[in-house]
Structures are given as structure tokens and as C-alpha cells.
Design a protein around this nucleic acid. Structure first.
Lengths: 340, 340
DNA sequence: CTGAAAGCGCTAACAG
DNA sequence: CTGTTAGCGCTTTCAG
């Protein structure tokens, strides 16, 4: 391994001068600078990042913690983070939290041990108190997809209520009046908010979504299938189905077809997230686009600013809006022959 | 930040002793060890990873380079790597290479600068000479999804030829005799090998796959759609369609349905990879399972061994086999009314 | 079994 | 403009 000493010796200068050249310190003579640069190039010298980190108390590294990279949503999130991190000249340390509070905490610890300059955290299950404490300890900590009022300036989040509202209004505008919903068994934050938005939109039209028209399942395809089967078993009638997310929506479509019910001709189905899979399934899914990649990039930039004590007003909020993407899983009620 | 000195001072021992306790050196008295452990716990001391790296010339960090995390295949790969890395007590540094040779090289450089103990690389476009050189320079470098004979012991790869062969044999066993294929415009390695396997299987039955029954497209949904349109425009007849991968297969199914051709009733379609999306589309896709997560984990363990100079016989190869997953996009030719 | 001391590669005053 | 010097936090001989 070629070190700064080697460069200094061969260039006939001190290590301090080499260091100055590396960091573009203007305090170096032109001739000297040229000579050092030449030697650096010849030797293929690269500063040792660990040594730099040790002395400067900070790394050019940003950490990210998500539940599980293999899931499309988090892979896209990570990809957004990676891009922004790279564009800012930083490196990315990554850890899966596996949906568990303890491994989430472990992941954060391990990132801190490496002196990450900032940490982007998609926390699903840690409680607010823990997160608030963490935020106090780590200047560059930013939460994605979660909103905690006390640390609003650290949160980059999505308006799920609006999302639920807008997608429901879209269905209403298409003439639908008979709604059903499938939601996550974990009725925390997102599922609750999306449903709340939907109910708000319905209420404005004098409609409601009674409990018997809501079924629960795990937030994936299997859960969607199961929830729809339950709805069908209950003998409920509906022309529009609101799914918590795209995966559940796709599961729902499978179950519906299995029961001889066509989508969208008999029942319109909407998802949420706009995962890549929403364009792969048939019919292509009408859904709310979750700008996760942009949010991730935004979070990285915010985290960098915060970690540089670039004082953000406490209480500032970083809110993103979902957007409707109309595809083929919804049709107007006028064209519906009979509903269900 | 609490350092080893703080612990030493408060515990009334030297830093050397604290270091020994941390590393479970057996050279410490029980009483002393207990006292130190207590202080460590009280202070919440965590060794500074950068300082450790500096002195020990190696980190507990493993790097991974993939083209783009937001793509399902690579997200799953990364997830497999992450799991194995964590289980081995290492941390994960990650970089996207964006399908470009230069940024791939940059990514590797940046990982080396951090003294990663090992690097897992999914290289698509770097040439073999570069990779061979890199392997010589970096003891812990392992290539995933690529095979280079000269550095066979560094390659964890899949038998694409067999894959192409097996999936084709499956179709043959279902009675199909009229084949078409859609493949990637980049006729490097994987696409060429899968096609080669298919042709081999066909040849054994006295069949062939002439060029007019092969169309090219980008290796994604759009490419699949376009390739099928081309096949159709050429007026080709076939009952079985071999797609380079799942994404192209799904695009193909879309294009087929758009043309009024049913899958699998009129045409059977097979993919390759077994991405999550293969279970989401309708009909669910029959495809070759690519054990990418297992391969990633295997690669990590191999990389760790190699980096510890745990001498692997040069020339050893680490080959994985794909596996057929029969779902709903294929049906027997006996039940086909007319073919296309 | 434990401590003292040297040094990993680099940066940042402080002199000159 | 450039060199000297003193560490950053930790591990690791080498003595004791």
C-alpha cells in the first residue's frame, strides 16, 4: 500500500504538503504542486479513508437503514439514496433492519461506530421516544417515510391521508358508489391514514365505508388475496376496491379473477405506491405514485446539511405528495353492466 | 465520544487491557475482566471502527457493487449479500455501477480506499483483462454472475446453458414443436448462453430455431413487447415462446394479449430469473429460478475465506444451477386448439 | 496476567 | 509557501 509518506519522499516534500495538495489547499507553490500531483498519479496513491476518518472525526460516509432490500419499495429507496450519496461525493453504508426493533437499533449502532456523517432511517417499528432520542444524539439523522412532530425537521414523509383521499375521489369521479377496502393487519400509521383519507372523501359525498366492507391481510399479495376472499365470503357487494398498497391490490385481482369477477369490468381496483410491478400486472394497475426515489435523494441532501450544522429551523417539515397514475384497473361505472 | 482511554482510566487499567477484553483475549484475569466489562457497559463504549481499521489494516467491512439497486434482481442480490455480511459480523458498503465501466471502476476504487476486506462485484461490462487484474490486486474480490476461466475460483455463477436447455426441454415435454425466442439486443454472455442451451435441446429433437424466429429487444418489459410485435409482424407461427428473462416474458404476454393471442391457451411463454414479479403477473409466469440470494450469500462466505488467505485451490469453480418453476404461462400442446 | 510504548496514515496548528 | 510536530483511537509487541 502506497502511503502519503511514500509520495512525500519521492516528491521531495513533507507529508503536510502532500496533504495540502490533496485537499486543494491554495497554500502550495505551483511547481511543488505539479510535482506532487505527478508523483501521486505515478504511484496511484489513494488516501487511506480510515486514517482520514480517524483524525478528522468524520467520514465521507452516509448510512442507510431499511427493512429489507429485496423488497421493491426499499430497493428503490436505497437506489435513490445511493444516487444522491454518490453525487455528493460520499460513500454508502447499508444495513437491513429486518422489520425488527432490535436489529434496527443494532444497525444504527454499527453505522455510528463507523462514524457515518449522516444516517437515513426508514423505521417501521421503533417507538417515537427512541427515535427522538436518537435524533438528539445524531445530528445527521433523517427519518424517511415517517412523521414525528417533535422532530419534524428530521422527517421526510408522504401525505398518506391526501393519497387515500385523492384515489377515492378519482373512483368517485368515475361514478363508483359502492366501495370496499382491504388494509394491513398492522393498523399503524400508513394503513390507518390512507383509510382515513378515503373515508373523508366518501363522507363528502355522503357515503361511508362500514367495517363489514373492510378486510385485513398482510401487506403483500397473499394478504390481498386472502382479504378479498373474506370480503367475498361475507357476501359483500362493491364496484370499487381500495387496496392498502400495490401488492395487496394485485393479490386482490388474482382472487377476484379466481372467483370469476373481472377487473376492471366488474370491479375496479386501485393500489398505492406505484411499484414497478404495477406496470407489469394485467390489467396494469391504477395507483398512487409514491415518489420514493426523490424523497430518498431529498433526505440525503437534508441529512448532509443537518450534519454540517447547517441549521435548519426546528419544526420545518419536508412533506411530499403522492400522485395518481391512471392505468387500466379502473373503469367508469357507466360502463359497468351490473356491479357485484 | 467515549474512547478506550476513558474506559481504561475509570476501570483503573491500561488501554491494552481494555483492548484485550474487547477481543476476548484470554490473557486477562477474571476480576479485571469483569471490572472492565462493567465500565464498558456503563459508559456505552463502542470501539472506533476507523481507528481499529487504521491499525489493523483491515476493516470488518465488505463492499458490494451492482448495476442498480432499484432493479428487483439486484435488490435481491444485495439483500442476500447483506444477510450474509451481517451474519458474519461484517458491515456492508454499497455502490451502484450504473451499467458503466467507468463508474464500476470508480465504485471499486472507492471501496478499496475504505479498506474493505472483501468485494462482491456483479460486473456486466468490464472486460476480462481488467477483472483478472483486479482479482490479482484484491484478494477478497469475488465475481457474481460471471465466469472467467482464469479466475474460476473467484467466480460464483449460474449455468445459463443448462437453464436454456431445461426450460426448452420442459416445453418439448409439453408437446410444443413450434418455437420462437426473444432475446436481448446485447448478445453477450447470458442471452447467448441461454439461447445456446435452448438450441441444444431443440437439436436433440431434430428441431431448430432459425434466425427469423428470434427477435431482439432491450432486456425489459418494453423490449419484450417490441420483440413480440416484430415476430408477429414477420408473420411467424409458434406455440412456445422462450424469453430471455421474466421482464421480457411479461412484456411479451402484454403484446400477445394486445394482439388477441391468449397465454397460455394459444401460446405458452416462459421467462428466466423468477423475479417476484413472476408471481404477480397473470398468468403467473413459468420460469427458471435464479438462486441469486443463495449465490450472493455463498459469494460473501467465499470472499471472506479468500481475504483471509484461506487458500482456495485456484481453478475451483462455484457453479449454481437454475431450477424450473412451473406456473401458469405454459400449457400442453394437446390442449391447444390451433396454435398460432 | 498486565502495563508501557510505539506506531498505523493522516491532518492541522505552529513555526519559520 | 513549506516543514515540524503532535496527536486522532486503537492494537500489539515487549518487558515485567
Amino acid at each position: 500500500m502506497v502511503t502519503i509518506k511514500d509520495v512525500a519522499r519521492i516528491a521531495g516534500v513533507s507529508t503536510a504538503t502532500v496533504s495540502r495538495v490533496i485537499h486543494n489547499g491554495s497554500q502550495v507553490g505551483d511547481a511543488c504542486r505539479a510535482r506532487v500531483k505527478k508523483v501521486i498519479a505515478e504511484l496511484g496513491y489513494q488516501p487511506n479513508a480510515n486514517a482520514q476518518a480517524l483524525v478528522s472525526k468524520t467520514t465521507n460516509t452516509i448510512g442507510v437503514v431499511t427493512p429489507r432490500l429485496s423488497m421493491s419499495f426499499f430497493g428503490t429507496l436505497a437506489s435513490g439514496v445511493e444516487n444522491a450519496v454518490r453525487e455528493n461525493g460520499y460513500k454508502l453504508l447499508m444495513a437491513n433492519s429486518l422489520y425488527e426493533t432490535q436489529s434496527e437499533l443494532d444497525a444504527i449502532q454499527s453505522l455510528r461506530q463507523h462514524n457515518c456523517q449522516a444516517i437515513i432511517l426508514n423505521s417501521e417499528y421503533s417507538d417515537e421516544a427512541t427515535l427522538i432520542r436518537l435524533a438528539a444524539e445524531i445530528p445527521g439523522l433523517v427519518l424517511v417515510n415517517r412523521y414525528i412532530p417533535q422532530i419534524a425537521n428530521r422527517c421526510v414523509w408522504l401525505d398518506n391521508i391526501r393519497g387515500g383521499q385523492w384515489v377515492t375521489e378519482y373512483l368517485l369521479s368515475k361514478g363508483h358508489r359502492q366501495f370496499a377496502a382491504i388494509t394491513s393487519i398492522y393498523q399503524n400509521r400508513d394503513p390507518a391514514e390512507r383509510l382515513k383519507g378515503s373515508r373523508q372523501a366518501l363522507l363528502e359525498q355522503g357515503l361511508s365505508l362500514p367495517q363489514e366492507l373492510v378486510a385485513e391481510g398482510t401487506a403483500n399479495m397473499a394478504g390481498g388475496e386472502q382479504a378479498v376472499k373474506e370480503l367475498l365470503a361475507r357476501g359483500q357487494r362493491f364496484t370499487a376496491l381500495l387496496a392498502y398498497n400495490d401488492l395487496m391490490a394485485i393479490g386482490a385481482i388474482h382472487a377476484l379473477f379466481a372467483a370469476g369477477i373481472r377487473v376492471p369490468e366488474d370491479v375496479s381496483v386501485v393500489g398505492f405506491d406505484d411499484l414497478p410491478v404495477a406496470r407489469a400486472c394485467r390489467p396494469r394497475l391504477t395507483t398512487m405514485h409514491y415518489p420514493i426515489e426523490e424523497m430518498a435523494a431529498y433526505a440525503v441532501n437534508l441529512a448532509i446539511k443537518l450534519s454540517n450544522a447547517d441549521n435548519k429551523a426546528v419544526g420545518q417539515t419536508h412533506l411530499f405528495m403522492p400522485q395518481l397514475v391512471a392505468r387500466d384497473s379502473v373503469c367508469g361505472i357507466a360502463t359497468v353492466a351490473h356491479g357485484l
